[in-house]
Design a protein around this nucleic acid. Structure first.
Lengths: 238, 238
DNA sequence: CGATTCATTGATCGAGATCAAAATTGGTGG
DNA sequence: CCACCAATTTTGATCTCGATCAATGAATCG
């Protein structure tokens, strides 16, 4: 639970009784291989997950094969809190790297947060944060150019990884194939390569294979019109 | 609160103690004109809203004027439950028709749901539903063609309006200009007109001005690959 | 090493953007 | 009821970004 707790620090500066989470015995730790489907569209939602390490994607595939990746689940992310109010999954979640992942049955999870208001609020905050990420994804896909989408995504991933305790660095791991990036950003595989090449030729990012080096943060932020307010990092509520 | 209560019926079939909501005195009713900004990007989030009548849009504008509408708020929708965990708005919400809207201060709202678990669950359900709508919007904008986007949106609006108590009908009100539809669907104004014309010429929808007539539901559903599972209509949780 | 998967690059094509003008709609006031 | 004005929609013409098709390179693995 380390990544999640690290993340929650930036929410709950006081850090009062979140300890209850680490102590609770309802989560069990599992290792999953790359490619494993954690949640299947249409399947019952009976567990809540917290990512310890590794990456997963949430995606939806249309009848004719077109696919859209909706979001990436990084260490410290929790899903599917949907389970508390909906019975069936409306998306598929798939591990794209080997993962370590905590899993709790929904009813036990519910009981835990019922007994601990601060904990409930903390999880609510993570849900809010994911909402904002989704909204920004809509803006990204709806109104930005190929390069802008890519630059914006790279910056978002950098921030989100740092929030979960990754060392501050201009090197961002990116274990996504061009196909996945395309399905994430609403572009074709080929165009991802092109946009990547453009950013490289502009000197904004460095050579890529499994991770991106950010060479000129400021230029990249400019190009992407990236404003990280939407990540609600240090906004303890009223 | 009629529209919201109607909507909640499909969630909480038992309909036990949601009455507390109607009785609670924390909401005040306001009339707003078209064009009024209900929530401004960057402004403190100190109120929770429930739409009684009229439409609003949540949108974000980039520095160079490109705009993306993230979602539409219809009668029975609540926002911004974000207020419970984030201090500042990351989007603008604007009335696009005259509206009647209920408003409660966030702290009072919090106290109310704290004292009433079923009510809390019901509001959580509305948040889950909005999440699903957002995810579907990502798929729509990321991977569908112009006509598909339009067809899909029309169908979604029809369902959502019905859920809030609008009479079942193949006539869907659509008080959005072509500009708004473009900013919503990630298209240009001109292309919205074209896509609309295409659907009309295909005999799927009827003449439009302020509302759309759905002439061939099935064909429209086919074209859009519309599957309304994501609206989680009758899925009381475990 | 073949076999497979993924990235890069080139060539061509098309959906949708942009620019521009005309037609329609909707008030408002005389 | 009509004339006028503004806002919006529709339509046409042209261009461009990104998609598609196809071939070539790298990289990984039994």
């Amino acid at each position: 639970m380390h990544a999640l707790l690290t993340r929650l620090k930036s929410y709950n500066a006081a850090q009062d009784d979140l300890s209850g989470l680490a102590e609770s015995a309802i989560f069990t730790l599992h290792s999953e291989e790359r490619g494993v489907i954690l949640i299947e569209t249409g399947a019952p939602l009976d567990h809540v997950f917290v990512v310890a390490s590794g990456w997963a994607i949430r995606h939806r595939t249309l009848e004719d094969g077109r696919r859209q990746i909706v979001n990436v689940m990084l260490p410290g992310d929790c899903f599917d809190l949907q389970a508390l109010a909906a019975r069936y999954a409306d998306h598929t979640v798939e591990a794209i790297t080997p993962m370590e992942i905590h899993r709790a049955p929904t009813p036990a999870f519910l009981k835990m947060v019922h007994g601990n208001g601060r904990l409930a609020a903390a999880f609510w905050w993570t849900a809010i944060q994911e909402d904002s990420v989704l909204r920004e994804q809509i803006v990204r896909v709806g109104r930005r150019s190929g390069r802008e989408r890519l630059a914006h995504l790279i910056l978002e991933l950098q921030r989100r990884l740092e929030m979960a305790g990754a060392p501050i660095s201009d090197s961002v791991p990116l274990p996504l194939t061009r196909d996945m990036l395309g399905d994430f950003l609403g572009l074709s595989r080929v165009h991802v390569t092109r946009s990547m090449g453009a950013l490289r030729r502009m000197g904004l990012i460095g050579n890529v294979n499994g991770s991106v080096h950010i060479l000129k943060q400021n230029k990249l932020i400019d190009l992407a019109q990236f404003d990280d307010d939407y990540l609600h990092q240090n906004q303890t509520p009223a």
